[in-house]
């Protein structure tokens, strides 16, 4: 194992070819592959339209209501006049101001700055239109919930959830060595996910996306009269809105790391497995299987 070089050391291009000796295993079921790509589309449209909706009131609060006559703001994105007659973008996190000119609060070119919380390139639609942002967001919300339902049923029936996603005691024991491997960009290509993969997939699928759906429902005045436990669970509509936003950030973070890891671990092999299901494992796979 120690003699094995990493994908990065060999370069991305040569990575998969130099492992030709490894056999192909059927790693991803049709349900995993289908839901993966539907989610990819959903998350793109939901994050961008959600940022449009956020632009209507780019402030986050804790509690049941928004403090206008008192202060319960935890995040606020705005613009301020500067002494020389210009504007600068200011993002306040727990009251601490950060200059975010060019990105948050004020974006666009220096000669023609635009005052808006989230810049146009990150929202759908790119122009300010709350009504249209809501149309896009709620359409993909239904698709996301339906896909989630399909995934839960299939993952429970084909045991994908317990076999591949939720980490067990053995996985957790490997956590320190797995963190070390990731830090050195050493990737083992095996049938099963490594423990950091399991933790991040379980975190997104079992924790973050369900939280996004539940906090979204908590913000709905048509839902909470009947499901008022949601208001108690999240500590109020405005806290739910804040959690919804934080979960969105986690999804974006996951997406960035996920794509970087795919590139680092050998994009051709990884993409083949999530499109066709077939994944080329390392030669040592037989030993790994035995260890499990």
């Amino acid at each position: 194992m120690a003699s094995r070089t990493t994908a990065i050391e060999r370069g991305e291009e040569t990575g998969p070819t130099s492992r030709r000796s490894g056999r192909l295993v059927y790693r991803q079921s049709i349900w995993t592959r289908l839901t993966h790509w539907v989610w990819a589309v959903c998350i793109f449209f939901m994050v961008t339209s959600g940022l449009m909706i956020f632009n209507a009131r780019p402030d986050l609060y804790v509690g049941q209501q928004s403090g206008f006559g008192f202060d319960n703001t935890v995040l606020s994105i705005g613009a301020e006049r500067t002494g020389d007659g210009g504007v600068r973008g200011v993002t306040r996190v727990f009251g601490h101001p950060f200059d975010t000119t060019g990105f948050l609060g004020v974006s666009g070119s220096a000669d023609n700055p635009t005052i808006r919380a989230i810049p146009a390139w990150a929202t759908i639609p790119s122009y300010y239109d709350l009504g249209t942002g809501r149309v896009v967001h709620f359409f993909f919300a239904w698709i996301l919930v339906a896909t989630m339902l399909v995934w839960w049923i299939s993952a429970l029936v084909n045991r994908h959830l317990w076999r591949d996603i939720v980490p067990g005691g053995k996985d957790l024991k490997r956590l320190p060595s797995d963190i070390g491997d990731h830090a050195r960009l050493r990737f083992h290509h095996t049938r099963s996910y490594n423990v950091l993969q399991k933790l991040s997939y379980a975190g997104i699928l079992v924790v973050v996306i369900p939280l996004l759906i539940l906090t979204g429902l908590t913000m709905s005045p048509g839902v909470v009269p009947s499901w008022s436990w949601l208001l108690d669970l999240f500590g109020g509509r405005q806290t739910a809105r804040t959690i919804h936003f934080v979960c969105m950030l986690l999804v974006v973070l996951f997406f960035i790391v996920h794509v970087l890891m795919v590139v680092a671990a050998g994009p051709i092999n990884e993409l083949r497995s999530i499109i066709t299901g077939w994944y080329r494992v390392d030669d040592e796979e037989s030993e790994e299987e035995g260890a499990r």
């Binding site: 808006r116 146009a120 122009y127």
Partner: peptide, 22 residues
């Protein structure tokens, strides 16, 4: 809306690709 329209003209190949359908 006016500010956003200005920004969308400036943005190069961002999310404005979907504006025309919406």
């Amino acid at each position: 809306a006016t500010a956003g329209a200005g920004a969308s003209m400036l943005s190069l190949g961002g999310c404005d690709a979907f504006d025309a359908m919406l």
